[in-house]
Design a protein around this nucleic acid. Structure first.
Length: 245
DNA sequence: AGCACA
């Protein structure tokens, strides 16, 4: 018979790193990492995002948070969340990330890996990874004091951003404001393309922080607007209105 | 499907 004494769920291991798979493999690595950073930083400070293009590791990523609480809320809030049209599968990572171990003092360099091209004499870069490519300096002393409350769920139905009612009449094109200035179009595409009728994202380089997202019709743009209203990219809740005609 | 640290 089965032993039901022990939990055999893989998610039980607490870890400050989450392992994500079922990611859309067509997305370029750099964009993927940026989008993951943008979407997951609402759960707490991110130390690093890792993803690789090799056969064995494509479609997967590791997001290292500063603490395990952020990781577990990220799992519970974002597991199965459609991202680039595919539901993300998220678990705790099996092993501790190197950045964490280095900070721990428990880091032991791996020597016998399948990489036969190891060069003993060459030193790699230190712990300044590209984790903060979204413009979040990793050394901010006071930043994580403002860890976002976990009350904010991806679909903040009732939570209304502070702004006078949008006066613009319904439009198949949405106007998105309050984006972090580093936001790439593909980040928005990842979020909006899950809604029917999505056509494209347009951003104005001369005006960072805003975007236009076009749907096939007003009904569909309205659904997406309400679903994503207030969704946080990094710390910024998106403000979505109809574009002016 | 696939748990790494290039």
């Amino acid at each position: 018979m089965e032993m039901q004494e022990a939990n055999q769920r893989p998610e039980v291991t607490p870890n400050q790193t989450i392992y994500i798979n079922n990611l859309n493999e067509k997305v370029k690595l750099d964009e993927l990492k940026k989008s993951l950073n943008a979407v997951f930083s609402q759960f707490g400070k991110i130390v690093e995002v890792q993803a690789f293009k090799t056969l064995k590791h494509k479609g997967q990523a590791w997001v290292v948070f500063e603490n395990a609480d952020s990781a577990s809320s990220a799992i519970s809030k974002m597991n199965e969340f459609p991202f680039y049209d595919k539901p993300m599968r998220i678990q705790f990572a099996k092993t501790k990330s190197d950045v964490v171990a280095k900070a721990d003092g428990t880091f032991v360099p791996r020597e016998k890996r399948k990489r036969h091209e190891e060069k003993g004499g060459k030193k790699k870069k230190e712990q300044h990874h590209d984790a903060t490519q979204m413009g979040m300096p990793s050394g901010y002393p006071g930043l994580y004091g403002a860890a976002p409350p976990l009350s904010q769920v991806p679909y903040p139905g009732g939570a209304k951003p502070m702004l006078p009612e949008a006066p613009a009449p319904p439009n198949s094109i949405l106007f998105v404001q309050n984006l972090p200035h580093e936001t790439a179009p593909m980040i928005l595409q990842a979020l909006f393309s899950q809604y029917p009728g999505f056509k494209e994202v347009r951003m104005v380089e001369a005006k960072p922080g805003i975007a236009f997202v076009e749907f096939a019709d007003e009904m569909q743009s309205t659904v997406a607007m309400h679903a994503l209203q207030g969704f946080r990219i990094q710390q910024n809740p998106m403000l979505i209105t109809y574009a002016k005609k």
